[in-house]
Design a protein around this nucleic acid. Sequence first.
DNA 1: GAGAACAAGTAAATCGATTTACCGCGAGGT
DNA 2: ACCTCGCGGTAAATCGATTTACTTGTTCTC
Lengths: 331, 331
Amino acid sequence: MSDVARAAGVSPAVVSRLLRGDETLRIREDTRLRVLAVADELNYTPNEVARALRKAEVGIIGMAVHDTSNPVYSEILDGAQAEASAHGFALLLADADELARGDRTFERIVRGNRIDGLLLQRGSSTADDTVANIASARLPLVLVNDRTRGEVGSVALDDEAAAHVATRHLLDLGHTVIGHLKLGAPKARSEARVRGWRAALRAAGVHDGPSLSGGHTTGEGGTALAKLLAAHPDVTAIVVSNVLSAVGAMTAARAAGLEVPRDLSIVALHDVFFAEHLTPALTVVRLPLRELGRRSVAAILRQLDGAQPRHEVIREPAPELVIRASTAPPR
Amino acid sequence: MSDVARAAGVSPAVVSRLLRGDETLRIREDTRLRVLAVADELNYTPNEVARALRKAEVGIIGMAVHDTSNPVYSEILDGAQAEASAHGFALLLADADELARGDRTFERIVRGNRIDGLLLQRGSSTADDTVANIASARLPLVLVNDRTRGEVGSVALDDEAAAHVATRHLLDLGHTVIGHLKLGAPKARSEARVRGWRAALRAAGVHDGPSLSGGHTTGEGGTALAKLLAAHPDVTAIVVSNVLSAVGAMTAARAAGLEVPRDLSIVALHDVFFAEHLTPALTVVRLPLRELGRRSVAAILRQLDGAQPRHEVIREPAPELVIRASTAPPR
DNA sequence: GAGAACAAGTAAATCGATTTACCGCGAGGT
DNA sequence: ACCTCGCGGTAAATCGATTTACTTGTTCTC
């Protein structure tokens, strides 16, 4: 910057104030053009690190994901990336499991002013004290796809409505014994879905079907379905809270000699690009994942502007039923 | 830091040198313990931004991906993340398309000392001049899953061997008319695969089958297969360079009245977690994607230590054929 | 007893911007 | 002739660490 200032015959202060668009700067038109020309000619780009030090704001938002390979998460990431970029912020990726372990690298990121705020996708292993630890670093924090009561922000999807829509679909097809493969750990989210499922059943005057944890991998989904079928052979349809579990469940159903959807209808929460290429193509309830990423970043940005953390639930766009081939009327 | 220094009754220099493990620092044992205790009590973590400014090294590596949702890329990302974290570096995510557009946010990242080096996954839209532009910023650069001649580093997979293995598998099954759905844009990678495919055919004394671009989405893969079948109805097997295209091709084959693998065998390059859940389960050649991410970060780190950029190809672990259900002998 | 050698630190410049308080100059008013 | 005011800037402190050259007191050596 001082090189530019010298070459343009002004003080560094002018260069800084001009380039930052300082409103209080009075400057002659010719000086303005000269400085701009010199900056351009010298190919000057301000050092962001120095800026960050002085302004105590780095322009980077941390994103802690605990399973990068899950396609659901990469869609959230995409939305977050777009929103951050639109506001001149960049995303720093971090492994949520390292965070939970209290890893050194992570401590440095969280407490070392490397990021202005953190987006956290809490996995099964990320406990409350990790959240408390981050909050104690006075770092703006938003829990993504999660609900909490505490002093931290959160943005959640309308899990209850989604489960309701899925269950309603099965009821409409004529099913009356409808099971549920729940999520594993994140309690609030899981409970919201159970509520939605149960509410739909109640509204239709149907008894609760069996409900057990379906984990969050294809493998876990498969074993969970096997267990469910063993205990409740009368089930004709299930709602699966996790797409990957649903895929595993579908494979397991076939292995158990059931044909989907003839003998068992399956509807999953969350759409993923390969759902339509499965056999049968998977019926799902699509939730606005990209929007979730977007709104999470927006929430962090609001906190950076001094707003109090809020708890929001995305109800628009509403959960959308995508009917494919894995659901049908009961035999 | 000065708070700690004051509370411990020493100068900031001691705190800095002690915490950084400066070998030239002579210090009494009791002083050492006192400073450490005070730092711990005050919950002191050094400001990474200030460090970065002084040392002209930020501890962050940029990763520009042009399609976050592709599961192939998220596996690379995972490997990169692990390696970076193991060396105390963090990953900054960026959209390669924004980079190609010359976006402001990106300029600030690349030229503003926000990152120590950049990992670039060149997509179809990322032209050579983008690479030149980054190189001109004197930023260590490594092209991931790509080959180049230039002054920048690169880490590639053994695409030729992979295509060879895939083709060899089809030949072993008895096929003699074997097509190829190529990759779209990244030329070097695409050509390596064509070479591998052709070499396997030649070695078996079989004529080249038809070869055309299969794009990199399910949609493109589908239309490409339709076109290929229309022109060459005698094809009994194909190698598909992109998994997503392969999925689309499988759907398209069925739509054309062909049964996979009875009428058409399909083998794809790259394994993805859902390949085994497709119907039929997709036969693939698995390449070490996580290792690719790892080695790419390692290559950047070497450049940071002053090493010259290199061009490397990962041959270990070797491409591995994973036989599932989409390949069979010709009818 | 003088000087060397060493232990245990310290002072101060530096990294590159940002920002606040201030300053000199010419024009206009009286 | 003196004062004021607005224009067009500038000087200098600051953000929080790092690092090199230097200092001070003590012990050892001959």
